[in-house]
Design a protein around this nucleic acid. Structure first.
Length: 210
DNA sequence: ATCCCGAGGG
DNA sequence: CCCTCTGGAT
């Protein structure tokens, strides 16, 4: 894909997606961090259902820490991987309180030092909470990048670096949400809606499957 | 490479 | 039944 096509790629995605923002519900950076940890291998709908009650009762590091692991589990039992997530979130709350004055750190290294936070979650927080030009490669973006050919790679890190090079500067801050929302609703894992896709003509995938 | 792990869709 | 969902730790 050449430079003109890459520009067209993002220009059309932006036109078709008026609000390229997260669908996770949160009020503070801390709540976003918790929601993103919970979103691993889970739908945002499932996460929002749980956090609606959780954040109403406990929306701060101190309040969630006071719930304890078993107390927190009661709110997130309907989300997959809840044992690990409950343990990690309680531990993350104590680290935030002890080392960061209860605030979410802006540094990648400090974010990735939190249990349950890897490169993908750190990238989401840096982009969504702090407005940094990061691209978090999740299951959707990995699929969209490889299918369309905007950035091919076998590993998520490979795709992340490819996307950062392939994305025109004006789209660096919104690329993450443009790609993920396109992947969720159009370029779906199964039965992608190529006939409704605004970039089908510059994508190598749809003609291969017809 | 494997485990964790509920809910929704087909 | 199957696959998929904004992964991380070992």
């Amino acid at each position: 894909m050449n430079a003109a096509q890459r520009n067209e790629f993002f220009a059309r995605l932006q036109e078709s997606i008026p609000e390229p923002i997260t669908e996770l519900k949160y009020r503070t950076r801390f709540q976003l961090l918790v929601a993103v940890i919970l979103s691993a291998q889970a739908t945002d709908l499932s996460v929002n259902r749980a956090t609606r009650k959780l954040f109403r009762v406990a929306g701060t590091p101190k309040a969630i820490q006071e719930l304890g692991v078993s107390g927190l589990k009661k709110y997130i039992r309907t989300i997959g991987l809840y044992n690990t997530k409950a343990f990690n979130i309680i531990k993350t709350c104590s680290i935030l309180l002890e080392d960061h004055a209860g605030r979410v750190p802006h540094e990648r290294s400090a974010l990735e030092a939190l249990p349950g936070v890897g490169r993908k979650t750190a990238n989401v927080v840096l982009n969504t909470a702090f407005g940094e030009p990061t691209i978090a490669v999740d299951t959707h973006i990995f699929r969209v990048a490889n299918r369309t050919g905007i950035a091919k790679g076998r590993s998520v890190l490979q795709v992340e670096h490819g996307l950062l090079r392939a994305t025109p500067e004006p789209y660096l801050k919104t690329a993450h949400h443009l790609l993920i929302l396109h992947g969720r609703y159009i370029c779906r894992a199964r039965r992608p809606l190529c006939t409704e896709c605004v970039i089908a003509d510059i994508c190598g995938f749809s003609e291969k499957t017809s």
